[in-house]
Every structure is written in C-alpha cells, then in structure tokens.
Amino acid sequence: MLLLEKLTNAIGAPGDESEVRKILIDHLAKLDLEAIIDHSGNLFFVKEGKTNKPRIMLDAHMDEVALQVMGYSSDGELRIQQLGGIDDRVLGSKYVLVGSERIKGVIGLPPIHTQERDSIETVYKTKNLVIDIGAKDKEEAEKLAPIGTTVVFDTEFELWENNVVKGKSFDDRAGCWAVAKALVVETECTLIASFTFGEELGMKGAALSARCYEPDLVISLEGTTAGDMPEVPEHQMCCKMWGGPVITFEDKGIIIPKKLRLLLEETAKKNNIPYQYKGTVTGGTNAGAMQFEAGGTQCVVIAAPCRYIHSPVSLATKQDLEQMVELTKAFIQTIDKEGIPS
C-alpha cells in the first residue's frame, strides 16, 4: 500500500498533476519503462508485446476534485470555485493545501455563536466560502496564492487495522495504483499505461490518449461510489465496500459492449474473484470519451468501491483494491489467450 499512500497524499488538481506524475515515473522506472509525457500532461508507458496480439490500454486519471483561487476578500481570505463536482455541504471547516507549496488553509465558517437559527440551517455555496491561510491582508494573500492557484483537501492516508484504507482522491489514484500494479502481468499483448489529466473537468486527456495510441481495447480503472450506507435503497446503490471489484454495464457516457463485459465476468468467475455490478447508471469515465476514437475502441471499466468519493475523505478496502488488480491482470491474460470478442 506504500505506492497508494504516496499517490493519495500527492496533490493533483485537474491540470496540475505533476506530483502524481513524478511518483508514477519514479515507481515505474523499476520496470525499465520509459515515461512519455504529451504536451497536455498525459503520462504514458508502453510495454511492447508481440505485434499479432492486441494492444491493451490500461487507463486511469491522475487528477482529483479540487478548488481554485478566484479572488480575495479585503481581509486576505481566498475566494474559490470548484474544479470537478464537490457537494457544497462537505466543504465547511475542512483543512486544505493551497498551491504546490502546500500552504495550509481552512475553509472558514462563522462560529455558531454568531449565527441566527436560519443561517445555521443554510448550506453555504462554494462561491460564498473562503479559505483562510492566515494572510494578514489581501496583498499577502495575492502573493502567497495568486489567482488560479489550485487547492486540494489536506487528508493523510491511513491503513486501519481492519484493512480499510482512508485517504483522499481514491478517485482516481486507486486506478493509478491499480494500473501500475497490473503492468507487471505476464502477457504477449502490448500494454499501454495511460495516466490522463483533467478527467474531473470532462475527460480532457482521454480522447488525446486513445487517438494517439489507437489501442484495440481500453481497460479503465477507477474508484467509484460505494453506496452501502443508511437510507440508500438497494436499487439505488452503486456498489458495496467489501463486495469485490465493480464492473460497469453502462454509465452516462458508455454502454460497455455486452460480449466484452460477459468475457470479463467469465474471467472473474474462472479466477474466483468476486465482482459486483455498478448498479446505478450515473457518472462517467474516460472510457466514454475513448470509445469513439480510432474508428471505435472497445472499453471496459473496472472500479474499486470507495465510500464518500468527491469529498475530503474516502474509505476503501485493501481487499477490493487488490482484487481489482487481480481481475485486471486475469482479464489481460484472457484477452491474450482468446482475443477481443467482435
């Protein structure tokens, strides 16, 4: 879990993924793979296989939901906007890290003593929130955090005794971690590890990646919304923690080709890897943007169930994460042996 710890502790707002990129480059240098970085910040590693075998892209995105400095109060607090979808209700009183220098800050709320009953029940919108970095005045704030500076949640990774991991940005550092782990699989297929930028702002790096490498198959690895919490009916539950890797049949961006999905399920069964469906048809991944490229590209999405994603803190299980890697490796070997269903 050391790599996952490094990855989730790294800061990586959309378009600002350099820390994550560096960790992946350092880690994958051990496999003697050359890092390729395109002009937009996408990171690739290519493990060449035999030319008569499918070219498989293992995809994950490096960015996380974040905030961005948009202005200042006269007292030197930072006015912000969201980069990616964050529930306004989870923002107040959270620790954050501002900019690449990791300046510490707090998203401030007025204390309860100073509020009327009506305002206590009000959810502050992001546009009405500010980050307090302790600046004396506006000038100091501008100097420390210029307009456009990105902000991420300040949450440290922990491995709990029950093998639950706590941290931020499991969407999609869990996917980055899984891609790096799955790359060691023994196969004659060419593997292209694709770590993209800007997914949270609309899959910005995905189309470029697929267009550039023209893979025969994309396996998108993600962290997705575990819904096993009170008051969520079963038919609205995306997936459960401890339930095994999550297989998407459809989301808002893609219908997974049925033959391919059934082959993935068959692979899980043959290898005694538990799996569950992504039970809601919501959200989207890089696969949605990659499927049109290069004349049409077949894609599957495998995810680790994570509770509370797109918030300051998420939970996942070591078991689900490891099984996601096992399923990915097994599926690569299935494709190696049987080819891609047409």
């Binding site: 893609i254 219908i255 499927q291 049109f292 490229e293 290069a294 004349g295 049409g296």
Partner: peptide, 11 residues
C-alpha cells in the same frame, strides 16, 4: 450519436 462518431473517426 455515439455509434455515428465512431464511424466518422473510422471512415
């Protein structure tokens, strides 16, 4: 137009 977009990138 998902299917159509794939056809366009191919043809």
């Amino acid at each position: 137009g998902r299917g159509a977009a794939a056809v366009v990138t191919r043809e």
